[in-house]
Design a binder for these strands. Structure first.
Length: 763
RNA sequence: GGUCAUAUAGCUCAGAGGUAGAGCACUACGUUGACAUCGUAGGGGUCACAGGUUCGAUCCCUGUUGUGACCACCA
């Protein structure tokens, strides 16, 4: 004990625990093989470009609490860590980095660019691991996977080939969301809609062989050169007579028919819609119905292509072309009205530019077919959402799922394993060698093959995370032990991106759910409830919070604020309060130590004679039971409240105060043992201080593997509990009434000797 | 337009069919065996509004309003 005192006081300010240095170096992968209880969590792989933000800190804290809790209770645990290659995001960062170093990324070959990206990844890719460690994350880092690693890539290729051969992946020319900045297609999910003020231009098209005009309304006049019809509602009395006639697109010789289609809303605009199938999703559908030609008038950079475009606009970027065209239309009195409207425009969530619908060849996953099993698994309760309401969100999206465009025209990612023959033949194989062999059978020489240059959507590979990390398609021991995983912890913002995709992929390839529970946590907002963002400047850095208040305080705060179904309004003040609470624990330890309390006794072996001690034992066991329950129900908010209540209101405010009066050997032994058990119970939440105290107080080298068995074996002493509870309420009355009434005096006289002594000490 | 949430003390949030709870802030007192990063005591609430069910509703139901998120669409 004397030695422990010197450690406490020598290394640290005696009144406060400084947590930053204490980190146990223990392998955190814990297959103990004592039993077959397994608990596993997939760590959502952060982007390789990422650094830790508060949302990460929240999700990792929750996962770490779960992992530590089950590991303590002798489960075989796996918290699978890793990093995502984050295709577009990474390519963006690397390109910027290259430009900053005087290299033009466009002048690099594909191979050179990939090499540069790997270089960049290798020097900055592991930063986030260090940050996770600082937060106390106890993951087996040696098992980390990276989505672009050789083995993982093999799994990705395998998945693609199998899906293709079974008809679940296909190539098609369709309208996709096109990002002009990156010159790639993106999926529907990668779009952010923003409401904006815009102008609706009313433009006259002259009817052929007539002096009459028809007026359409559009927000995108420059696409008029891709028009292939004008549509009106079949019941629209104003325009009925025009159906079947033809109009001429201004500044061109092209004639387009006026058609009738029920999609048209008579109230909107002029009631006449210019139909541009290659540049609008709804127009595309109309075009299909009426067998219209699809004319693309923009190239991949968003410039007007020659051919259908009049000479004076050729080659111009669409916005410039629009401006020039409008001036011209005005001059020629074809622009009859400018109406101010608000409308929603799609923006690329990475590029920030307006997304154009574009007619291109892309690869798609037939998500509808994959969705069925994924929906069923949740409907049947094999996979459960916590809180349950998120299952509605999941169903809504899954049941209306659209084909998933998985090809990206970028470099960084898994290159699609497809080879083309000279006449457009497609060979999808796991390797070039196999493609050559397949081609040979079709009488195509290997040297005539060219490989698809597109790469896969990042989320295609992330979707395989639950089983690809465990070695799929090989059958591994890890997979046997840990698949399906127990709990997925994630934010609601990636239910579609990731959770839904993992569900689909896992049901298809493993024929089994990827996880049993999905715990959906909140979004961390600032104290005013605003989303944190760099542009608003309200981002709080977890690392500096940890530096100021300690990792335990941050973890405790995040868990405390994790009320299901409510976003977290996060203020620094909260962390300070938690830090104060950590200090309270620290000081309790200092006091017990100064009293010469022994900490090494096994709690279940101490013989209990006094009500006071039976009381604290009863409270301790109830505390343990509550914690167990709350962890099982993912109520980290309750669990942290339990911890606070037990150590402050139960242990410090009453029991420690009582020790000052009743300090016999039994009570001291109980105090030390209860405190030791408290440290153990709190360890998953606040690992730094608890492990440190356990260590210096001689309780254990670490609490990381200590189970709750001893506490659960204890008896509940209901009588002693109510006796002491009575004493506590007497003390409250004594204090608030500030004088002793006859009634209180009688109540005190009814107490047993030891308790009476405590009550009398208050008087 | 559709869906899902949410409304409780000045603030952040718990809560249960039957005397409204915590932390912070506020007031008073306290450095009498750890802790002022603390302790003790205290003030403070028509539990958004309107109906309904009930012996009893802040809690359950319906509607209204406010707030938030997501999805879809926009000529």
């Amino acid at each position: 004990m004397a030695q422990a005192t010197s450690m406490l006081e020598k290394t640290y300010d005696p009144k406060q625990f400084e947590s930053e240095i204490y980190q146990k170096n223990i392998s955190n992968f814990y297959p103990n093989n004592e039993n077959n209880k397994c608990f596993s969590i997939l760590m959502p792989p952060p982007n390789v470009t990422g650094s830790l933000h508060l949302g990460h800190a929240l999700t990792y804290t929750i996962q770490d609490i779960l992992i530590r809790y089950y590991r303590q209770n002798r489960f075989n645990t796996l918290w699978q860590p890793g990093i995502d290659h984050a295709g577009i995001a990474t390519q963006m960062v690397v390109e910027k980095d290259l430009i900053a170093n005087g290299i033009n990324p466009k002048e690099l070959s594909r191979e050179e660019f990939i090499e540069k990206t790997w270089e960049w990844k290798n020097q900055s890719g592991d930063k986030i691991f260090e940050q996770q460690k600082a937060l106390g994350c106890s993951a087996p880092w040696e098992l980390s996977r990276f989505t672009m690693d050789e083995n993982f890539s093999k799994s990705v290729i395998e998945a693609f080939v199998v899906l293709y051969k079974n008809g679940l992946i296909y190539k098609a020319k369709r309208l996709v969301n096109w990002d002009n900045k990156f010159q790639t297609a993106i999926s529907d999910l990668e779009i952010q809609n923003k409401e904006e003020n815009g102008i609706l231009w009313h433009i006259k098209y002259q009817l052929e062989n007539s002096n009459e005009f028809i007026t359409i309304a559009t927000t995108r006049p420059e696409t008029m050169f891709g028009d292939t019809a004008i549509a009106v509602h079949p019941d629209d009395e104003r325009y009925k007579y025009l159906v079947g006639k033809v109009a001429r697109i201004p500044y061109t010789d092209r004639l387009i028919p006026i058609i009738a289609d029920g999609y048209i809303d008579m109230e909107k605009g002029t009631g006449c819609l210019k139909v541009t199938p290659a540049h609008d999703i709804n127009d595309f559908a109309i075009g299909k119905r009426h067998n219209l030609e699809m004319i693309s008038i923009l190239d991949k950079y968003g410039n007007m292509v020659p051919g259908y475009t009049p000479k004076f606009l050729e080659g111009l970027y669409l916005k410039k072309a629009r401006k020039l065209l409008l001036e011209k239309l005005k001059e020629d009195q074809l622009l009859v009205k400018e109406e101010e409207i608000t409308h929603t425009l799609p923006y690329g969530d990475r590029s920030g530019t307006v997304i154009e619908p574009m007619l291109t060849d892309q690869w798609f996953v037939d998500a509808k077919r994959l969705a069925d099993a994924a929906i069923k698994a949740v409907e049947e309760g094999k996979v459960r959402f916590y809180p349950e309401k998120w299952k509605n969100t999941y169903f809504e999206w899954m049941k209306n799922i659209e084909p998933w465009c998985i090809s990206r025209q970028i470099i960084w990612g898994h290159q699609i394993p497809a080879w083309y023959g000279p006449n457009g033949e497609i060979f999808v194989e796991k390797s070039e060698q196999e493609a050559i062999e397949a081609a040979k059978k079709a009488d195509i020489a290997g040297d005539q093959l060219t490989r698809e240059t597109d790469v896969l959507d990042t989320w295609f590979s992330s979707g395989l995370w639950p089983f690809a990390t465990l070695g799929w398609p090989e059958q591994t021991k890890m997979s046997q032990m840990f698949y399906p995983t127990t709990t997925l912890v994630t934010g609601f913002d990636i239910i579609f991106f990731w959770v839904a995709r993992m569900m689909m992929m896992s049901m298809y390839f493993m024929n089994e759910i990827p996880f049993k529970d999905i715990y959906v946590h909140a979004l961390v907002r600032d104290e005013k409830g605003q989303k944190m963002s760099k542009s608003k400047g309200n981002v709080m850095d977890p690392l500096s919070l940890m530096e100021e208040f300690g990792a335990d305080a941050l973890r405790f705060t995040l868990a405390f604020l994790s009320v299901p179904g409510r976003d977290i309004k996060f203020g620094k003040e909260h962390v300070k309060i938690s830090r104060n609470f950590i200090t309270k624990i620290w000081n309790a330890a200092r006091f017990l130590q100064s009293k010469g309390v022994p900490f090494e006794n096994n709690i279940s072996s101490i013989i209990l004679t006094s009500d006071l001690n039976k009381w604290i034992i009863t409270k301790l066991k109830k505390f343990q039971i509550e914690i167990d329950q709350n962890i099982k129900e993912y109520r980290f908010d309750y669990a942290t409240r339990n911890i606070q209540f037990f150590i402050r209101d139960i242990f410090c405010d009453f029991f420690v105060e009582a020790i000052k009066i009743i300090d016999n050997a039994e009570t001291k032994a109980i105090a030390g043992a209860v405190f030791a058990e408290f440290l153990r119970i709190a360890n998953p939440f606040i690992p730094f201080i608890t492990d440190y105290l356990a260590n210096v107080l001689g309780i254990a080298e670490t609490l990381i593997f200590s189970s709750s068995d001893n506490v659960l074996k204890l008896e509940l002493y209901e009588n002693a509990e109510s006796e002491v509870d009575k004493l506590i309420s007497i003390i409250h009355s004594l204090r608030s009434e500030k004088q002793i009434t006859e009634e209180l005096k009688n109540q005190i006289d009814d107490l047993s000797g030891e308790l009476k002594k405590i009550a009398e000490s208050i008087i």
